[in-house]
């Protein structure tokens, strides 16, 4: 009798189901019309099937974004699970599009789907990469900008995963401050 080993044929389930979104800046359409859901997945295998199939961020046009969010959370400030939250923001220089962007984005995705931040992973809503002429941006969004402990855990581990030198600081900003800012910079609530 041959007994099948489930390990050999079952896909590896993730803790969460995730949705990958794509934003393309078409000025003739509204912001929400430009945001498209690409696919959802909840296994390691299905993640890679999707990841291997789509363009790397460095190949996207200016004004485009990828967003990976937990299923049920829309990649916008207004979503109930985002509106009290904020983001760890990494601003890249132009050179880093060729050197770091794709690697950083993949590490970000692996941090999310692998639940790399322990208990603090529950605070994670998603991640965003913005491809922009002035410099690309990467961010991890969390659900409550007052959960300092979880936010700091996520920031410290994220920085470590991306091998950012400890003297290079990254900042956490609330969506409330980002959406109501008048200038081009938003104050950091936390830094690591």
């Amino acid at each position: 009798t041959v007994v099948a080993n489930p390990e050999e044929y079952m896909k590896h389930p993730l803790q969460n189901k995730w949705a990958l979104w794509y934003f393309k800046n078409d000025k003739s359409k509204s912001w929400t019309e430009n945001l498209r859901l690409i696919a959802k997945f909840d296994t390691v295998e299905d993640f890679w099937a999707l990841y291997n199939h789509i363009q790397q961020p460095s190949k996207l046009g200016f004004g485009c974004d990828y967003c990976l969010f937990k299923d049920g959370i829309k990649p916008m400030w207004e979503d109930d699970r985002n509106k009290l939250g904020g983001r760890w923001l990494m601003t890249l220089n132009k050179q880093q599009r060729h050197n770091d962007l794709d690697r950083y984005w993949m590490e970000t995705l692996l941090c999310l789907i692998g639940e790399s931040f322990g208990e603090a992973s529950e605070d994670v809503c998603g991640a965003v990469v913005n491809v922009r002429p002035k410099g690309d941006k990467l961010a991890i969004w969390t659900g409550n900008c007052e959960n300092k402990e979880a936010i700091m855990t996520i920031g410290q581990q994220y920085k470590e995963r991306l091998s950012i030198p400890s003297k290079a600081l990254i900042g956490y900003q609330s969506h409330d401050d980002t959406s109501s800012k008048s200038g081009s910079t938003t104050k950091n609530i936390f830094t690591v």
Binding site: H12, E45, F47, W48, L110, E115, G118
Partner: peptide, 20 residues
């Protein structure tokens, strides 16, 4: 329990053909 996967584990599946 919580399904946590480290990066090496996840990377190990990148080029495996999906078989299910």
């Amino acid at each position: 329990g919580k399904k946590q996967y480290d990066r090496e584990f996840l990377l190990g599946f990148q080029f495996m053909a999906a078989c299910v």
